[in-house]
């Protein structure tokens, strides 16, 4: 099984990835292979099974509403590729 070029395009955009023509071909094939392997999950009737999202069961893990230290702005911006005064700078939106 191989997934369609259109599907690869759609998924690549959702994931905000630019793919080369070669990458698109590879992923169409490789994703197809993994997904058809994953189809074995459909062999099982799991309608009565509860999904597991967490490996260990914990509930109500909460913190109190007590203010703590924020960062120095310089530190917050230290890793920013581009900044404008106290802000993170980004290109135009549209």
């Amino acid at each position: 099984m191989s997934i369609s070029a259109a599907e690869v395009e759609r998924v690549a955009f959702l994931a905000r990835l630019h793919l080369t023509a070669a990458e698109k071909e590879d992923y169409a094939r490789q994703l197809g292979a993994v997904l058809s392997y994953a189809d074995r999950l459909r062999e099982l009737d799991l309608s009565a099974v509860e999904p597991t999202a967490h490996a260990t069961p914990l509930f109500n893990v909460l913190r109190e509403d007590a203010p703590g230290e924020s960062m120095e702005r310089e530190l917050a911006l230290a890793n920013a590729p581009e900044r404008a005064d106290g802000f993170f700078a980004v290109p135009r939106i549209v």
């Binding site: 509403d65 203010p67 703590g68 960062m71």
Partner: peptide, 25 residues
């Protein structure tokens, strides 16, 4: 008083990017 997932203040009107920490960034 604090953000939903970290201890930064929710107070309005602070200087930009001063109520931030590694979690909310």
């Amino acid at each position: 008083k604090t953000k939903i997932f970290c201890a930064c203040s929710t107070e309005f009107g602070a200087a930009e990017n001063t109520h931030v920490c590694p979690v909310c960034l």
